[in-house]
Nucleic acid binder design. Structure first.
Lengths: 330, 330
DNA sequence: TTGTAGGCGTTATCAA
DNA sequence: TTGATAACGCCTACAA
């Protein structure tokens, strides 16, 4: 900066004013400075600016697993929306466990992200006594008792719609394939509740034999569940999967056992990840409005960065049930 | 930091020494300082440290599209390897075009990433006169004339192996579905060359009618290509797809037209993304060693950060041809 | 309209 | 083994 100032024959302060487009710099001086910047290849030092201002202009996005299709999808929307608002996004991987998610918060502050969007799957009790007002927006399904801004998925509503749809297509023995804990309030328990409610309304069986619980929510686990389901002799004719990833594994596992979809079994997923539309058969699924969620989450962090003490809010994403081949009638 | 120093009754410098695990601090003092840190909730200010040291400890990873399965896959390996070496990874989206990729480099320097791994698909002539020694590692397929460290895919070798395999399975009319420019040296032209070579060795047809060029390399484009291919009357019995994403779209498009895979047409892809194993039918594909590539790329940036002037190198990833249902014999 | 002084939090250097 | 000082590059506040 000093070099530029010398080259242009002005002070550092004038250079700063030009760089930041501040008023009060005469046109000829401004031009001299810009020329000097160009010639010297000067570039502002973000660290110095950050040190002074206390802001980095970076929003963190912590997701359980960057590899999962769903998160790539989400990330691209968050990046776009943040850019629109003049922020930059840094993606963090938290691992799908409470420790990793708590670490992500700590790391986010250490790295001085101005705020963090945390797609939490495991963290239900987050303790942050030291600095309770770090701008933190929860994205996901758990219950945080109103302590954080929270963009939620339409978990119950979505699964309810998917289950009801399968029933409407003629399914009578509808299983659910899910993972994680059915205790407490989280994605899994909420989706399970939507499934139960839809079956109850129609007087259809629900009970444990139709409940398949996975160790994790991977494609491989979905595939294994399909094998168990096919071998169970339960006469299952419909399956609600807790996520599309699991559903895609299911489709594969049912194919392994020679079961036709939708001929023998109808399947519905949740998320509408891109591969869902291209699977063979294409996958019926609950499609939350990801763009809406991303935009909302970014809006909330940005607002909270500006006003750390404003009251928190909870917002549920709108969704559509996208009906495709995997649940076709007849 | 001053607070901590006061609390522990030492100087800021001693606090710094304790925080950084430097030798030359007596045990009792160290303990006092750690206790003071704990009580005060002190956290180092990364910006200040960066300002002083000129290093952020962050490596950028610029990918064309965070949404593509392949890049999520890659990113998770890069993150793991970087963490092992004490670096943090920031993921950037460049858009699959030369402008976006050049911007990614500029942004990387503005944001003061210590180095950048650039998965370039469009950038063939990168000009950076101002600061030619920014640690930059190219990941991908283009030819950079030895100006950068470069981790390349086994493009020709891989496609050659896939094409030869289809021929060995009995295919006689093998098409290729690809995208982008066949001019110059890039991923697409390299893969095309591997395909031509394998066909030539076996005296099989190649020529333009069997070449399907896409506008982009999306699933949707792959699907559309399958429709064109099915409607072409060319009697195609094998297809080499330039990527798995395209191949998965192809499988979908062939299903749309009632063509059975592998019964009527055999298909091979490139990348071995996770969904490839779970597709119906599961996809035969060229599987470059992604972990190896990620590790190599990180190793190269880290080395170049330490020694900006060392000579550049080019490294080609090892690969395996993973044979699955989509190319089964008979 | 432009310039000067001081400080953001850290660490390298050198002195005690 | 510990501490004082200066400097990293920028920006706020104030003075000219």
């Amino acid at each position: 900066m000093e070099d530029v100032a010398r080259l242009a024959g002005v002070s550092k302060m004038t250079v700063s004013n030009v760089v930041n487009n501040r008023a009060g710099v005469s046109e000829p001086v401004r031009r001299r400075v810009l020329e000097a910047i160009r010639r010297s290849g000067y570039r502002v030092n973000v660290s110095a600016r950050t040190l002074k201002s206390g802001r980095t202009g970076v929003i963190g996005l912590a997701v359980p697993d960057v590899e999962a299709a769903y998160f790539g999808h989400l990330a691209s929307h968050v990046i776009a929306e943040a850019r629109r608002r003049g922020f930059h996004v840094a993606i963090e991987e938290s691992g799908a466990n409470a420790g990793g998610e708590a670490d992500a918060v700590t790391r986010s502050r250490t790295l001085q992200f101005d705020g963090l969007i945390l797609s939490a799957v495991a963290l239900d009790r987050l303790e942050e006594p030291a600095d309770a007002h770090y701008p933190l927006v929860m994205l996901g399904e758990q219950d945080f008792g109103g302590r954080f801004d929270h963009v939620a998925m339409p978990n119950e509503e979505g699964t309810h719609a998917a289950t009801a749809h399968l029933a409407d297509q003629g399914c009578r023995r509808i299983a659910i394939v899910t993972g994680g804990s059915l205790e407490g309030v989280n994605m899994v328990s909420r989706r399970y509740r939507g499934y139960r409610a839809a079956l109850a309304e129609r007087g259809l069986d629900a009970g444990p034999p139709l409940l398949f619980v996975l160790d994790d929510m991977s494609m491989e686990a979905g595939r294994a569940a399909a094998h168990r389901l096919a071998d169970s002799g339960l006469g299952v004719d419909g399956v609600v999967a807790v996520t599309d990833t699991v559903a895609l594994g299911l489709l594969r596992g049912l194919a392994d056992r020679g079961l036709r979809v939708p001929g023998d079994v109808r399947v519905a997923g949740f998320d509408d990840v891109p591969p869902a539309a291209y699977a063979v058969p294409s996958l019926t699924t609950v499609a939350p409005d990801h763009r809406w969620m991303a935009a909302k989450a970014v809006e909330l962090v940005v607002r909270r960065i500006a006003a750390p003490l404003r009251p928190t809010g909870r917002y549920v994403a709108p969704f559509q049930l996208v009906v495709r081949e995997s649940s076709a009638a007849g």
